[in-house]
Design a protein around this nucleic acid. Structure first.
Lengths: 354, 354
DNA sequence: TTGAAAGCGCTAACAA
DNA sequence: TTGTTAGCGCTTTCAA
């Protein structure tokens, strides 16, 4: 891959390759006299020496590669996290490999295995399902891993996310403050932690305000998509249940619901208020602009990366076999919930007087 | 990184490691009897053998790594290209490393050099500037590289993009068809090929229709952003030039212009028509929905990846030094322009009768 | 068709 | 503090 190798640098500096190696490596630099160290560094610079990653990796069993797994890069939720993670990792000398699973468990498994074969030092995973075989295996194998955005039921892997419960509470409080009492919830898929957490938080917030409840108040959508949101809203309308506001599991569901309402001639926010979740780009430019909960996506990425780096340092060189040296690891690990905000915009207003 | 190595497989199959290697490698499999080959394959399967990428890379000087460089992952223009490229590459056994340069030349250089040190087999680059030192060097070094979306002035590297000229012509024809004659152009930055090509195409289309021209008809924006678009639109308004339609260098510029017009009390599409470029997600949901030119982003990614794979195959094992074996390479290489479409929506209408 | 052996470039354990 | 040496796991030339 490149011409000049460590031996060339060593020769140019008049030392042996071993010494040159120590001089160039920050961790071992202090085993070498300042003078030689300087001489070697200068020679390396002059010759344009670039270490061979393969040789180093073969020797050290460290790749300085981190894999990040997202369900779909074209979903604007993920790029800010990716960016945050990349900034932290590249500053620490790591290279981020991004893979897109296309929301498919088989693809995901293949990607993760391919990356493991590359000796990837750790993973940041944004695709967790609530029950997730692959992640159980990864946890079992002690591969340094951090979950971001979505958690698993086990809680055995470190997790970084937004404070879903606080977000939902903010939204419900806002609607109640406007005078709403009958609020329906269009939940996200229940095989994701976000779908479950938000639904649970909704029930809790409703109970906290002693708002009316009814059997079909919480309707899970099959997916976080506009189509699923529209379908759920249509069913909600057909149920003839009364409601003056709808809280949606995410913005896409909210958008679908808004479409359905508009097609049914139900105007927002005059006849119905709608709140989303995620604050996707552009939803502030719609008519009316969407009220929604904002997550600190970039910060989720940076924090996940930082936690992963700690984990990697703690674990030492990769040895996929799982070093049996450590005693049983703690059952629960760091679960970081970052603060969220409510963006109050045009889709929420006081309920119509009936 | 993993436990079972080639020697283990060889032992299990009762052959020499060399033979096992030949049996497992599709390219050398025919040097081995079908029986042994089968035996080795079965042993590998049974033991869960995964080749060590470092050892192989060290030996073969091939990383099966491809770097993709984008200015900003959070810009929705790029994820579809990334996805397209990843699909093609991972199917071919390559791993895609995505890096985000944050629109900064220094960051870009660092990232590319880091990836080169990793023995990256090739690059897909979406950040090209019209005059680009780094890319000149990359071309010089004969590192397999494909440009996507943005081209350089030299045309020395293969390029895949949308047919900008056709897109602009489509837009101008549409406006003229509605009855517009005085059309202003808010150009993108002139240090990108897209900014230059589209501006040139605009001038050509205007000339083709023998439309009126004036000195300040084409106004370059400093960046592809809403802010720059708004600023340019404000200046356009201040110039007191007459116009009934505005064509924008991209959607973000169009959105900024729409804001500026709306703040100035100039209603779209009644008083001014606006056409964007790129068809970003959600622009079809704005009020009014944006008329714009759609690029085949996903296909641009897949085609770029395919061309890159051909290049890599042609180049043979990486040796960044540039093999002097080949005679002078052709000055011009494949420049692929993919078809574009015009999405006619709500921001364009017949001009007001004055 | 298979085995033997060398070596890719680096780091780390040991010796001086 | 520096030199010496061995070896990470694989592919590939050469010999049988």
């Amino acid at each position: 891959m490149q011409r000049v190798k460590l031996a060339d640098v060593a020769r140019a500096a008049g030392v042996h390759p071993g010494t040159a190696s120590r001089a160039l490596n920050p961790a071992t630099r202090d085993q070498v006299s300042r003078a030689t160290s300087k001489r070697v560094a200068r020679a390396a610079e002059r010759l344009g020496y670039v270490p061979n990653t393969f040789a180093r990796g073969l020797r050290t069993a460290r790749s300085y590669l981190v894999g990040m797994v997202v369900p779909d890069v074209t979903n604007p939720l993920f790029p800010p996290m990716v960016r945050g993670a990349e900034q932290v990792l590249s500053r620490a000398g790591y290279t981020l490999v991004l893979t897109d699973t296309d929301n498919d468990a088989g693809t995901e498994r293949r990607q993760v295995e391919q990356l493991r074969a590359r000796g990837t030092d750790g993973f940041i995973i944004a695709t967790a399902r609530w029950e997730d075989r692959l992640l159980d295996e990864v946890a079992e194998a002690r591969v340094p891993t951090v979950l971001v955005n979505r958690n698993t039921s086990g809680g055995r892997l470190p997790y970084v996310g937004g404070d879903e419960r606080a977000g939902i509470k903010l939204a419900v409080d806002h609607l109640v403050g406007l005078g709403h009492r009958r609020i329906a919830y269009l939940a996200g898929p229940q095989d994701t932690s976000t779908g479950r957490e938000r639904a649970a938080a909704f029930r809790q917030a409703v109970a906290g305000h002693t708002l009316p409840t009814w059997r079909t108040q919480v309707r899970p959508c099959a997916a976080y998509t506009e189509a699923a949101g529209a379908a759920a809203a249509v069913r909600l309308l057909a149920s003839a249940a009364e409601f003056t506001a709808v809280l949606a599991g995410n913005d896409l569901i909210a958008l679908g619901a808004l479409d359905a309402f508009s097609r049914a001639g139900i105007h927002c926010p005059d006849r119905v208020s709608v709140v989303g979740f995620n604050d996707l780009p552009m939803v502030d430019r719609l008519t009316p602009p969407l009220s929604t909960v904002r997550l600190p996506l970039h910060e989720m990425g940076t924090l996940a990366a930082r936690i992963l780096l700690d984990e990697i340092d703690a674990a030492g060189p990769t040895d996929g076999g799982g070093s049996a040296m450590q005693p049983a690891q703690p059952q629960r690990v760091a679960q970081s919930l970052l603060g969220v905000e409510l963006a109050v915009r045009g889709t929420t207003a006081a309920p119509a007087r009936s």
